[in-house]
Amino acid sequence: MATPDFVLDLRAKIGTDPLWLCGVTAVVVKGEQVLMVKRADNGAWTPVTGIVDPGEHPATAAIRETLEEAGIVAQVSRLARVGVTGMVTYDNGDQTQYVDLTWRLEWRSGHPHPADGENTEARWFDARSLPSLSDDMARRVGAALLPHGEAEF
């Protein structure tokens, strides 16, 4: 996974100590289909995820990450869920915890493909036949599949 430069700069100052970051999950829908990517780091199928850059609006980050990771142009339709991950410890010892903002996005154009090396596959799945997901990812997707409504907390 490509680590943003601002995170590398922070790590140079704080080492592997816990770092609180804002992340996004982009659940892109196309009719009855959901875009999923297979992560290169652990082989898990997930929606597109990423880190919000400093000063970037989180909805814009969801759109950007979708294009960067899967080659899909999409439009945000609503905030679906606000969550907090557990502490993540990476292989190099870095510790990070994320406030995650899950967005529902509507497909506009493009054919899914692993566009930036962070994923090995990208494709549409029928919403009723998604690949195996972690409990947390299943909650994120479930919240975003509702076309309307308030965000879950």
Rank of each mutant, 00 (worst) to 15 (best):
T49R: 15
E32Q: 10
Q97F: 08
V73Y: 02
P112C: 13
T96S: 15
L35E: 01
D126G: 12
I14N: 03
W107E: 07
A122S: 13
A62M: 03
P112K: 07
M137L: 11
D100P: 00
D94I: 09
V88D: 11
E150N: 05
A122G: 08
P112S: 09
T120G: 12
D5E: 05
L67A: 11
P112F: 01
R81G: 01
H113D: 09
M36I: 04
A2R: 13
G86R: 11
A59V: 00
T85E: 12
G43M: 05
T89W: 00
R64N: 05
P147L: 06
L133P: 10
R128Q: 14
Q33R: 15
L35K: 12
A61C: 14
G86T: 10
T16G: 04
S134Q: 01
C22R: 03
D17P: 02
V7H: 09
D17H: 06
V141A: 12
V37N: 07
E121L: 08
T46Q: 12
P54W: 06
P112A: 09
W20P: 03
N119G: 08
V28W: 02
A115M: 05
A40E: 08
T120S: 06
V52W: 00
G55D: 06
H111N: 06
S132W: 01
E65N: 06
V34N: 04
A26W: 04
L10W: 04
V48A: 11
G23A: 15
T96Q: 12
V82M: 14
E65H: 14
M137Y: 02
R108P: 01
N42R: 05
E118T: 14
T96K: 11
T96H: 09
M1N: 01
R11Q: 14
T3V: 15
T66C: 03
S134N: 07
K13E: 13
T3H: 10
E56D: 04
R140G: 12
G50T: 09
F125C: 12
A62T: 06
A26R: 06
V24D: 00
A127P: 01
L67G: 11
